[in-house]
């Protein structure tokens, strides 16, 4: 049992037991708590002043993470910018040179930089990094515009290339016969003595002799415009190669093509014969450029080897099969 406390009452000159009144108890507790609270506040204040609170640290770490991710994004954007720059250089220096078109002006490439600020609506007032944020928006926007221009450029270049390839494929560029079938390359282009009329006549083509029935090939891609029989030319085929070129193949024994049909270089269009004003089986090959007869010899590509010529003919056969089925 707790010891009873006494107090010396100076008025009564007696020791009197101390009676704990609830009021005293309450005020004691309140005092104790008050002091505790003061100390607690002191501790809290000191803690906040000398240490970074956990919550703030957590936020700082998060902030740091976001900025690191931002740096990574900036880095990735920079590498895309480098890549598009390389593509632009190649576009201007290689493709546009080869395809003979003007390079895209750098002012166009830098599309829409300057002028009114499209980024003024972006709210960055909540961050101390508004410059960083706006800069990334601007760089990315410029990149997207550059890519868009590059896309358009490829669209253009592909169209141009397609047309050029059509031109390259259409140009008469091979012998109308297989080398092994050729017996003799006879009368050339120019003034020649005519075998039947025995007088000087302008020979508008090249005569190539071969055995009766050997195949005759289209020398470039084109459309068959005429297949007919004429007194002088016999069975003759005209091919329109577009781009100003036309070829004619005369004295055939038979055609294998119809008017309006599309042919590829190396397609068989008929067979060697001696129809019309002809003394022996041969093909009379004419080349017309912009309405004028020109010498076909420079267009024959004589340096093309036999195997290579056969490859061209074979490739055209494969194409035919695909077209037929």
């Amino acid at each position: 049992m707790a010891k009873i406390k006494f107090t010396y009452n100076t008025e009564t000159c007696r020791y009197e037991p101390v009676i704990l009144k609830p009021k005293h108890v309450m005020s004691n507790i309140a005092g104790f708590l008050g002091v505790s609270l003061m100390i607690a506040l002191g501790i809290t204040y000191a803690y906040h002043s000398y240490f970074t609170p956990v919550k703030e640290t957590r936020l700082l770490v998060e902030n740091h993470d976001i900025k690191a991710q931002w740096d990574l994004l900036d880095h990735n954007i920079t590498s895309l910018t480098d890549e598009i720059k390389q593509l632009e250089i190649r576009d201007d220096n290689i493709y546009r040179t080869i395809l003979d078109v003007e390079p895209i002006a750098s002012t166009v490439r830098q599309a829409g930089v300057g002028g009114s600020d499209p980024f003024q609506d972006i709210n960055t007032s909540d961050t101390r990094e508004s410059e960083m944020v706006l800069n990334t928006y601007k760089v990315l926007d410029k990149l997207k515009k550059q890519m868009y221009i590059q896309t358009r450029s490829y669209d253009d270049l592909e169209k141009i290339l397609d047309e050029k390839q059509r031109m390259w494929n259409s140009k008469p560029a091979i012998y109308p016969l297989n080398y092994k079938d050729i017996r003799r390359t006879g009368s050339g282009f120019g003034w020649r003595s005519h075998p039947i009329f025995k007088r000087l006549k302008f020979h508008s083509g090249l005569d190539i002799s071969a055995a009766h029935g050997k195949p005759i090939y289209a020398t470039g891609d084109g459309i068959i415009t005429t297949t007919r029989y004429s007194k002088s030319y016999g069975n003759v085929v005209y091919i329109d190669h577009d781009f100003g070129y036309e070829t004619r193949y005369a004295h055939m024994s038979a055609f294998t093509v119809k008017e309006g049909q599309t042919v590829k270089r190396g397609d068989v269009i008929g067979y060697i014969g001696s129809t019309g004003w002809s003394t022996s089986p041969h093909v009379h090959y004419e080349l017309v450029h912009n309405g004028k007869h020109i010498d076909p010899v420079p267009y024959l590509n004589k340096n093309l080897s036999e195997e290579e010529l056969e490859k061209i003919i074979e490739a055209s056969n494969e194409h035919d099969l695909v077209m037929d089925y």
Binding site: E56, I66, V133, T136
Partner: peptide
């Protein structure tokens, strides 16, 4: 400081 960071983190995350 915390309020500032919170706001900034939110804004940056949004834009990121």
């Amino acid at each position: 400081t915390e309020a500032l960071l919170k706001k900034e983190n939110k804004t940056l995350s949004f834009h990121l």
